[in-house]
Design a protein around this nucleic acid. Structure first.
Lengths: 234, 234
DNA sequence: GTATGTGAAGTAATTCACAGCT
DNA sequence: AGCTGTGAATTACTTCACATAC
């Protein structure tokens, strides 16, 4: 017998399974979504191994997060567990997939077909998780028209048209720093709604656009910090 | 006239410039180091533009962090500003570089010469920030012995020897999930002290090894979440 | 006047601990 | 007996606001 879930404005009962009318719109912290992604990966592996049920503690061991953390994270979205038993692996995986929006395929545009761009294009992990790069743009005339990984390289000028045509919602930016903001502006104008940026610069986007930046060198700099300070050899 | 800095065990005065005996070992939060990296990049750009001095507010505008945040972050490490004036760009950049350990070059080993691995090898951003990939390992016999970007591909079996020989402290793991933990274990045995992992699995390392993971798909999954939920079109 | 450096206040994230269900 | 879901407690992080210095 599920308990009512408290909402922003008022409260209403919610069915046992998640899926309902987004009634769980409490404010979600910045930290939980990346963790859901991790839970999901582990659940997927467990499912393929034939594990049917797992406790928050078990999932904690596999993911590296605390059992309490996992229970709290999930509780933002609903009640997925069986009290006294744990979580049914398949059921929880499906629920999280739905929460993350991974129950559909996303069309993705990639801008920049240099080293990094072409690696991302060939990276199988994106496709596996439902992200399909259906358009690649570059401004290097020698590359335009060539077919890489089954996708034709297009000139940047075709961006707007192609993004509309293919209903692309997500853009990946893998261009040099100097070009990054400009490319992002173009993507926004083309109607894209979320951007993953690999250029190590601060990018500004309108409020309604979601932006994430993956700073490769910055990660190494953090390691460098810890080597020179925290974990310095006596 | 710099104030004494309070330490864990006792306190002692600190010279105007940072640089001293790690006296600033208050506990630094997980969040500040990545920000230092961002400050540094902006300072570098300002310096090359000829800007000599900047306030925390000015730096805040450029980096996207609040002025208070910046001041607090820096205050963990010392006093770098001129009250009433701001921060001398060059001086602050040098200080942060030193804090991050970017005043030396780090030798880096790359494991995995697939798509992602070779893109990382060719990525100029690492070298620019002082990270030099001096060894690349793979287990694909067809690749071994070939020279890429000036670096000879070696068999994984040579790892231990080469890492000692070149005094490599940092390892980058760009192998498939199945192999990742095993590769990390080998790196650790070879005496590496920090690892940047690109495989989307949880990796465990001994306490004294610093590990960071860059999860490419996870970033996209976060975007997917925000598209399906927070920023859903009415 | 101007802007730092920093305690104090305010938020956010995490962990505790346990009532309540199976 | 076992484990979830969740308020309460704790800890971490950020912002405020101002005394202090130039």
């Amino acid at each position: 017998m599920p308990k009512p879930v408290t909402i922003f404005t008022d409260s209403l009962p919610v069915s046992t399974k998640w899926a309902t009318n987004m009634s769980w719109k409490k404010r979600i912290g910045q930290t939980v979504v990346p963790r859901l992604s991790a839970y999901n990966r582990v659940l997927d592996k467990l499912y393929r191994k034939g594990v049917e049920i797992i406790s928050s503690e078990g999932l904690g061991e596999k993911t590296g997060y605390s059992a309490a953390q996992i229970r709290k994270d999930l509780s933002f979205f609903g009640e997925f567990g069986q009290v006294g038993r744990g979580y049914y692996v398949k059921e929880l995986e499906d629920a999280i997939s739905q929460i993350l929006g991974l129950d559909t395929t996303w069309n993705v545009a990639l801008v920049g077909a240099g080293n990094l761009g072409s690696a991302l294009l060939a990276y199988p992990g994106f496709r596996e998780r439902g992200f399909k790069i259906v358009a690649v743009f570059d401004n290097d005339l020698r590359k335009i028209g060539k077919k890489w990984e089954g996708v034709v390289l297009r000139d940047i000028s075709e961006m707007q048209e192609k993004i509309k045509e293919e209903d692309i919602q997500i853009g990946i930016v893998a261009v040099p720093v100097e070009a990054a903001q400009q490319v992002v502006d173009m993507l926004v104008l083309s109607g894209i709604r979320a951007i993953l940026n690999f250029a190590p610069v601060r990018i500004v986007v309108p409020e309604d656009i979601e932006l994430r930046s993956a700073e490769l060198s910055s990660e190494l700099e953090c390691l460098s910090y810890f080597l020179t300070n925290e974990k310095a050899v006596g």
